[in-house]
């Protein structure tokens, strides 16, 4: 309990210290549109992602929030029929530019998926996977270091430190999801995208992951898609509301949940549709 208080104290201090960087725009979407074949799934989205903040994307199913998220590290490239228009920048660089290496981009903008998807390898190898392919560790001891610190940051170290060689698929759902977060952290990304990371988890595991997201904010910029209003309110500083492929409204989470500008946002967060 003491540790927890200390941790949250640290966070509070961190927040104050980072107050200035809160205003840095890490990623910017400018008139982003997405087509799946002939069908347009996303229309003219202008959305900024601020550094060291959690940006929540909310909206009813099929509203395009996941589609927008997947544009941010070009995961839509893996779908043959998908086509992206408009401009998305990361630190002012257009990520859809021909000179941008998509592999490098994804190392900077990591992703955690809806369903926990650990590789059928050991827990250690799951975390070491990213650093290995990017050559981040020269020696075994360096790799051990990375694995340990990533697992610690993902708040799962104490549960798995004695069973690092066991398969990652043998963990519980909540542990698997934190393992996937550790795997994403291990390559030291700047931005972490989370696509409904708690939808497959029970309330206790969800609480742990939410706690973790709040801690991760100090070092990373996070964009999270969620179906849970409470989750968006709990973990995010900024919230963007999507509806039918359009961005309805975007702003500080406090304002969005107390006094939204748009009636659709009002209706959605009070549960009138969605």
């Amino acid at each position: 309990m003491n540790i927890m208080t200390e941790q949250s104290l640290e966070n509070a201090v961190g927040d104050k210290m980072n107050a200035k960087s809160n205003e840095v725009i890490k990623m910017r979407g400018d008139k982003v549109g997405v087509f799946y074949g002939e069908k347009q799934a996303l229309f003219d989205v202008n959305l900024d992602v601020r550094q060291n903040q959690v940006t929540a994307l909310i909206g009813p199913s099929g509203c395009g929030k996941s589609t927008f998220l997947r544009c941010l590290n070009r995961m839509n490239d893996t779908i043959d029929s998908a086509r992206v228009t408009g401009k998305i920048t990361l630190d002012e660089d257009d990520i859809y530019d021909k000179n941008i290496d998509v592999v490098e981009l994804r190392a900077r903008v990591g992703m955690v998926f809806q369903k926990p998807n650990p590789f059928p390898k050991s827990i250690y190898e799951n975390v070491a996977y990213g650093p290995r392919i990017h050559g981040l560790a020269k020696r075994k001891s360096d790799m051990d270091q990375i694995v340990e610190s990533s697992l610690k940051k993902a708040a799962i170290w104490n549960e798995v430190k004695d069973r690092l060689q066991e398969p990652g698929t043998g963990l519980s759902g909540g542990q698997q999801q934190r393992l996937c977060i550790a795997r994403a952290i291990a390559v030291s990304p700047e931005v972490i995208l989370m696509d409904e990371p708690c939808s497959a988890l029970d309330p206790i595991a969800t609480a742990r992951v939410e706690e973790l997201i709040d801690e991760l904010r100090q070092n990373y910029t996070i964009v999270i898609v969620t179906h849970s209003m409470q989750q968006a309110a709990r973990v995010s500083q900024r919230t963007a509301m999507f509806h039918l492929g359009y961005l309805v409204e975007e702003g500080a989470t406090d304002k969005m949940f107390t006094n939204p500008d748009d009636k659709r946002t009002q209706d959605y967060i009070t549960g009138r549709f969605g």
Binding site: R106, P118, F119, G130, R132
Partner: peptide
């Protein structure tokens, strides 16, 4: 999900296949 997980970490296609 396995492919996405690997590609999402910045692995290339052939790394994903191989590893």
């Amino acid at each position: 999900a396995m492919r996405d997980g690997s590609l999402g970490l910045g692995a290339t296609r052939s790394e994903t296949i191989k590893r």
